[in-house]
Each structure stands twice: as structure tokens, then as C-alpha cells.
Amino acid sequence: MNYLILGASSGLGKDLAYVFAKNFHNLILISRDDRDLAPIKSDLENKFSIKVTIYKIDASSKEEVTEFLNNKEILFDDLDGVLFPIGMMSNNDNIKENDKNADAINNANYLSIVRFIEKMSPIFEKKNKGSIVGFGSVASSLGRKENVLYSASKRALNSYFESLSATYSEKKITTQFYILGYLDTNLSFDKNLILPKASTKKLALKVYANINKDNILKYYPKWWGIICYIISIIPFYIIKKTIKFIK
């Protein structure tokens, strides 16, 4: 089987690549820096004797994504699944300053994924099979002062995957959507967070185990579901008073 991973150079994306490779699936890996993809390709090919193709694409750029999706040499028809472990944050993502990064953040977190799925949907429909996996964030459960566009785009993605799941409810096209809490990545490595960080390796194994199942709105780690539920039933005027603490 062949899978495409957008955002495969580090963190969860890299761990997904290793789990799929270990199970002998060929891979198309995409990231914005091919210096990071090349060692992953050689490592996976040497260790698991699979075929790995890499592409340097910046998912925050509409033009680069569109050009890639229109590339006739890429064998999209051979793909059995697509995974989108991608996310982009910015230091200036607030109400006043976000105009400079708005397109990039929206593209990387939401619109590029939509474009990929638009490309893949007819292919999967024709085959009447395929797996689509997206990843949201607990940040999208609440408005905030920082990471404004990030959380908004992740909430949009959440809604989009619900629609995707509804669209394919009668077909053998499966959709998974995980809402992620704190993960143990290079970004969180030196941060003193109140709640524990979850392993990206374990999540990758979970995603692989569920690849042929429909799984919408799975929280990872699970207990984030309880926190997000409590947040959802608290009236917003109460949350607003405490929102100054939320970034």
C-alpha cells in the first residue's frame, strides 16, 4: 500500500513515516525542507527496503501546493491513504498583527489540506477505498488572545473533517480526525507545561492501527476530551474573564 504524509520531516509526521515504513508501505513524504526529508528517506529505505519519494513543498504557499497537485509525474492514483500531521504557528498570531501571516497560517493548517483532499477524493471514490487522516488541536476548543488564526484554522479543519466523514459515510473511504493535546515534540521540549506531554510515537501507532476505521473527534491523550467538554459547557462570559491566561 502507498501513503502520502504532508509534514513528514519531524515530530508526529516523522513517527508516522516510521510506523508505516515498518509495516512495509511505500511512502510519499512532503515537507518544506528537503534537508530533513533526505535522511528520513535513506534511513527508511535502508532499514525497511521500501520505496520513499520525497518532495520539498511549503504547505503555507498556495502556489507550491497547487503546482505539486498538478504535477502529472506524481502517481496520485496509486495512493491508498493521505495523512496530514501538519501545523504552523506564528509568534505574531494575534488580532492586531496577523495580517502578514494570515494566508500562510490558513494555508498550512487548513486550506492546503483541503486542496490535497480535493485532489484525492475523486481517486478514492473511483477506487471506493482510501484513508484520510487529519489532526486538530485542543487550542481550537476555545478562543484566545494568541494563536488566534491557528486555533481558528484548526477549528475549521475539524468542521471540514466532520463534513468529509458525513460525505463518505456510505463508502469505504475512512476518515480519522484526532484532536491533539500537548505532544512531546521539539517545540514543547523545553517548555514547562502544566499538563503532561503525550508521545508522538504512541499516537503514530494508534493512527496506524485505526487506518481502516472511521474515527472522528478522537482526543489524544483521551483525558483532553473531558477538559474540552467541561470548557464547552461553561458559559463563554465566564471563560472570557479567565481568557487573559490562555495563549
Binding site: S9, N186, F189, N192
Partner: peptide
């Protein structure tokens, strides 16, 4: 970036250090 206390294996030296774990070449 917060500091982390780190100990040598022989436990004779402890220091508060800034610890980063890059996973991309551009991060190095």
C-alpha cells in the same frame, strides 16, 4: 526557554542549563 537542572553521570557536577532538542537541520 526555561532552565533545566542536569547532572553528570558520576553525580559530581550539577548545573542549570538551557536544553534544546532540534529535529530539523535549520533548527541547528
Amino acid at each position: 526557554m526555561f532552565k533545566k537542572k542536569f547532572k553528570s553521570l558520576d553525580k559530581r557536577h550539577t548545573a542549570d542549563i538551557f536544553l534544546k532538542r532540534p529535529d530539523k537541520y535549520r533548527e541547528i
